[in-house]
Amino acid sequence: MMNLYDPRQPRERPPIQLSVVVPVYHGEDCLEELAAELALVREQLEQGGLVSLVEAILVDDGAVDGSARVMDALSQRFPWITAIHLSRNFGQHSATVAGILHSCGDWVATIDEDLQHHPKFLLPLLRHTVENGFDLVFAKPIHAVHESFVRDFSSKAVKQVTKLMTGNEHVTKFNSFRMIRGQIARAAASVATERTYFDVALTWFTDRIGLLPLPLKDRRYVAQRTSGYNLYSLARHALRLLLGCELKVLRAGALVGFATLLLSAVLSCVVVVQKFVYPETVDLAGWSSLIIAVLFSGGLLASLLGVCLEYLSVLVLRTLGRPTYYVVDRSKDALLCSELSREKQAA
């Protein structure tokens, strides 16, 4: 029997709601523990009364083990856990997008299935986000996550190269442990296509992005040296990251082309003046003209190619879902911030 209307009944939910999204691919052994940890955090938050973990959305991304069954059992046991089953393996970003589009929280946290992103860090992450006026905070691993030089170094290297080529300073912050303002998370998830790198999509909606150093460790990789990613999928992941960003290096190439074109025009003026005013200074006829012709044609091609690529970039970004603008409501932050500060002082 459903509850009937009782206006005297107080609102049972605090004003700030937190959703947790967990893409699941290989989590049969970890999900029980994860749910227990989330339940613990949920209980603690309920006691505080300020933030409520309203839902944990487990997204079965075509899991290769018995995760789907465990997820269903968990959703039966805990009403705040929702299990979503994707029809096949679409990848971690697509699964995250699917989970976020099912969420309703004021804030959305995304974590991995294997407890490398421990739920106990959710509140510190939220506190850091709100206190600093961020819309998005990534966890920053204090130590090497995989304890593998090649894996950790290549990950950092790809991000650094991408940062250099694109000028997107946030690329190096990207991590799958995120705390995102719910509106922005859902907006970015709405525009994301299968080719969109989700973190890049988030940067289209906000530049209030922060980092919080946390002890993160990929325990499964460290213990078993196995991962859901192989070399090919990592390379594809890196390519998607690169293509999702605006390539500033192309713009630089176009500028060099324009500069070369300009230089060839100036040099041709110099050569013409020299030919007619100071013909005696010309030692070798034809050489200067040849260089100018090469410079002119090269500069012209580079600049035209740059313009074409700029057009292409606009189309690609449009296809990937980059918005013209987005309106956000941060009015609840002040309340949350003051309450969190009060709580901190009391503690």
Partner: peptide, 22 residues
Amino acid sequence: GQQRVDEQSPCRPCRPYGRLKL
């Protein structure tokens, strides 16, 4: 105005239309 409504959530109509349905 309620989120994640389920069977346990109490009905709280905010306007005449909701009260009519109740």
